[in-house]
Nucleic acid binder design. Structure first.
Lengths: 252, 252
DNA sequence: CCTGATATGTGCGATGCCGAACACAGTAGT
DNA sequence: ACTACTGTGTTCGGCATCGCACATATCAGG
């Protein structure tokens, strides 16, 4: 069996929780483009990316789309499961093929309600997710396609292992909510400046520093938010004194 | 004492919770334009709007802004309090003067952790909040100023009692993240079509039906989401066993 | 090798929005 | 009544992006 990158949220799960969800947790491989949630659909599973990326899209009536977030091993897809809604208002699609841990909504919800530390962990991620959405929204509104492309590439790289990305200009256009031709132009500029090379859906970043310079502030903001979350997670996993892991639950 | 509209979330709080937070809850009046959170600031209080509106803004480095959500009596400002972050990534500003219930973050967090029903209620709202943000983000990207103005006016009306809104074209421009002149033009069109009348910061909607027709789908989506939440809240408040229903008025 | 599908490149006019500058009109203060 | 300020109306050039049409390049399969 391939040894995938672990998911950071799953990693810090208390041992007892891991034990409980064990039978409900599956490691599966999902191909590029696979749609795991359709907008408005009830959700059955949540997904913890290991070495793949899932992209969340909002789609308007007239068919235009916008990416609202990209989730890698730092997060989970399907926060709706524990947030109270039965269905997601957006589409979730595999942006980068790879392995994902799949857990049933009921098991997820059960752990969420049972263990305070699991709750804290998931809500902390949700908070980070919200911040990313806000940033993306503002970026969509105020920054050029050139800048947004840089941001997108950088964020995708951070969620991958290497400098090679698998995404066509068409798919990038859908994420940014712009025309494909706009992406062609922006990508062409980057290639001329020797920042990236690409061909038929394969993009290689050759000068990351420069890419960061050309990007808008939004990349830094999202990255800092992700790092902040990363840094706060291990604390949740410390053994406390010798008290039981999670104490007083109000049975209500 | 003025009898403000009650806040819908506070209304469905279990009686025991109401009792506990009693001493920490204040009813205060906030004037138009008052900034209650600055971006990045640690938060001390959460706010439950009674008859006012609070607007959440994201502000970019170059000074551009975008509204990411408007919160009325259906919600609460400061979800960060129970989501794990200590600071908000956005600015919160009073969009419509009025009364607000103010609660300390510690009291809020305590109830959140102690009572499952409070948690469900607040997370359900957060879910609705996220959906609104996503919608706003997509709207910013894909719809015209004209359409967005209609959406903004409708959503503001829903959160107020009447057809009169207090907002200048300048402040609207900040919310939509566009130029003031753009708003002048869009508002001028609406006035010519006898949909609204306005003068120096007072806007009166005279033909709501038409306004809805001119708006993009985004208004409907956000409204449905808000209504869905509204409808789900009472269920949380069902009397258990044969416990009595408690009065609707918060003693304060 | 040919064919069809996918991915990318390019050109063009149209347009919605921007940025700036300025004029004008209500409103408030003294 | 005068002044200062705030809110609104208007204009004009500029530009990023759009929508469309079409050309080219690369790849996959029979």
């Amino acid at each position: 069996m391939i040894n995938p990158l672990e998911n950071k949220l799953l990693n810090v799960l208390p041992l007892e929780s891991k034990g409980r969800i064990f039978t409900d947790l599956n490691l599966i491989h999902l191909p590029l483009g696979k749609v795991i949630y359709e907008s408005g659909q009830d959700l059955e599973f949540v997904y913890f990316p290991a070495d793949g990326i899932i992209s969340l899209f909002y789609i308007t009536e007239d068919g235009h789309s916008s990416q609202i977030s990209a989730v890698g091993s730092e997060g989970v897809v399907g926060i709706t499961a524990f947030m109270g809604g039965g269905s997601t208002p957006y589409r979730a699609e595999v942006q980068s093929a790879g392995f994902f841990y799949r857990l049933s909504v009921t098991a997820m919800l059960n752990e969420f309600n049972l263990v305070k530390r699991v709750r804290i962990m998931l809500l902390s991620y949700t908070q980070s997710f919200i911040a990313q959405m806000a940033q993306t929204a503002a970026c969509n509104r105020h920054h050029s396609i050139d800048q947004q492309l840089c941001r997108l590439l950088l964020l995708s790289m951070d969620r991958m292992e290497n400098n090679d990305l698998t995404m066509t200009q068409e798919s990038i256009a859908n994420m940014l909510g712009v025309r494909r031709e706009g992406v062609t132009e922006a990508a062409g500029k980057l290639q001329k400046q020797n920042v990236i090379t690409y061909s038929r859906g394969k993009i290689t970043v050759t000068d990351r520093k420069k890419l960061e310079k050309l990007s808008c502030e939004c990349y830094d903001v999202v990255k800092n938010e992700t790092d902040r979350l990363d840094a706060s997670l291990p604390k949740l996993n410390l053994p406390r004194n010798n008290a039981p892991c999670y104490p007083k639950e109000m049975p209500i």
